[in-house]
Every structure is written in structure tokens, then in C-alpha cells.
């Protein structure tokens, strides 16, 4: 890995993303939701957890997938791969911008909702796992898509299955659909975020964290294999 090249990638992503309407629009969604929830009556911990999941789903996964798919669509990814930058330099440089945007949106959302977090360390652990998982999923979508339109087609169902499980679960409180949704990453993130915000004992959500780790490892492995199969590695 080469720090100068990763930094060059980051600067490039910043210049490119700041005028990318698609990126800017997905960044606004969680902030808009945070403003909406801050004005509504109800449990702040639920509102905050919901906005956190929306952030990793929309900002992390969408930005990562959109930026990668655009590189493929415009034939700039091949140019990068023919440069002295390693595959790791390229992928890390590309992921950092999604992570930075996610962190900014998470902090802004927390300030807007003004939630009191009893266990900030465990909330951070949960969010870090969520960010890694959704960076991997976004990369996977970017790798599988040939263009931006295809990216959107892949992202929508993936968002519902992986991110919005807890929201859909509200309409299917019982039965097989509810059971399946209970095992999606969004559900485990929701449980872990709620527990960390309210300061529950770690033992009460240890299983959620373990499942989240499992999902993250699985997503990283699948993404890595796809990366190799798509001949994008050097």
C-alpha cells in the first residue's frame, strides 16, 4: 500500500463527488429523516437507530456503489488498474470517501436528534461493523453493475433486504417473513444500536454483534472473490 496514492485517490474522489448530484442527494436523505424525527414525539433511541441504519444503507452503500459503477461506465477504472497504483490503493482510496461522508452524516444526524447514548463505545463498534459491511456490499454492487442504471436496479432490493429489515418487520410481526427478516443485518444493527443507546448490558446484545460480524465477514469474502473474478485485481 502507498499512502501518497491513497491520498491522491481521496482528493480525486472529493473533487469528483462534490459536484455529483447523485451522491449529494443520497447524503441528504438521512439528514432529512433526522430533522423529521427530531420534530416528532416518540422514542429518540428508535429514531436515532433508524437514522443510523438509513445512513449506512444510503450513504455508505449507495455512494460506494455509485462511485465504483461510474468508474466502470466511464472507462476510468481500467486506466487506474493500468497505473502503478495497487488494487488495494484504489479500493481503499475509493472507500475512504464513503466512510468520511457516512461519519459526517452520522454526527450531523446525532446532533439533530440530540440522543443521549449510554454506551458510546458499543454504539461505535456497531456502527463501524455496519459501515464495513455496507462498504463491502456497495463495492459488490459496483463490481457487478456495468453502468449507473444497473447499480440503482441492484441497490433497491439490496437496501430492502439488508438495511430495511426492521422497518418491514413492523408489518410482518409473525410468520416466516418476520423470522427471515430477523436475521438480516439491519435487524441486528437495530437491536445493537437500541441496546447501546439505552445502556443495556453487553450480554443482552452480544448475539446481535456476533451475527453482524458474521455478515460483515461473509460480505467481505464474497466481495473479494467477485473482485478477483471480475479480473479487476492485478
Amino acid at each position: 500500500m502507498n499512502a501518497a496514492r491513497i491520498s491522491a485517490m481521496l482528493v480525486k474522489e472529493y473533487h469528483d463527488a462534490k459536484s455529483n448530484v447523485q451522491v449529494l442527494s443520497v447524503v441528504i436523505v438521512p439528514i432529512f429523516l433526522a430533522i423529521l424525527y427530531s420534530r416528532m414525539d416518540g422514542e429518540q433511541s428508535f429514531a436515532a437507530s433508524f437514522v443510523f441504519i438509513m445512513t449506512v444503507t444510503f450513504v455508505t452503500m449507495y455512494v460506494q456503489a455509485l462511485l465504483l459503477a461510474e468508474e466502470k461506465e466511464k472507462n476510468t477504472l481500467q486506466v487506474l488498474l493500468l497505473s502503478p497504483a495497487s488494487s488495494a490503493d484504489i479500493m481503499i482510496g475509493k472507500s475512504i470517501i464513503s466512510v468520511i461522508l457516512t461519519v459526517i452524516v452520522l454526527v450531523v444526524s446525532m446532533l439533530i436528534i440530540d440522543v443521549n447514548v449510554e454506551s458510546p463505545i458499543m454504539l461505535s463498534v456497531t456502527l463501524v461493523l455496519g459501515v464495513i459491511l455496507f462498504v463491502a456490499l456497495g463495492t459488490l454492487v459496483g463490481l457487478l453493475s456495468e453502468n449507473l442504471v444497473q447499480t440503482t436496479v441492484y441497490l433497491l432490493p439490496l437496501s430492502f433486504v439488508f438495511g430495511f429489515g426492521p422497518m418491514i418487520q413492523m408489518y410482518f410481526s409473525e410468520g416466516i417473513v418476520a423470522d427471515i427478516l430477523g436475521y438480516t443485518p439491519g435487524s441486528f444493527m437495530m437491536e445493537a444500536c437500541l441496546a447501546a443507546i439505552s445502556g443495556e448490558a453487553f450480554s443482552s446484545y452480544r448475539e446481535d454483534i456476533i451475527w453482524l460480524v458474521g455478515w460483515t465477514v461473509a460480505a467481505l469474502v464474497v466481495t473479494f472473490i467477485t473482485f478477483k473474478k471480475k479480473s479487476l485485481s492485478k
Partner: peptide, 20 residues
């Protein structure tokens, strides 16, 4: 071959100059 269309000519070349 593609270029980063939203970036300026100089920003494009600066980026590749750093990579190389």
C-alpha cells in the same frame, strides 16, 4: 479511455501525476 468529466483538466492531470 475515460476522464473524470466533472473535474478540471488540471485536476485530472494532477491526480494521475500523483499516481505515477
Amino acid at each position: 479511455s475515460g476522464l473524470y468529466e466533472r473535474m478540471t483538466v488540471e485536476q485530472n492531470l494532477d491526480f494521475y501525476a500523483k499516481l505515477y
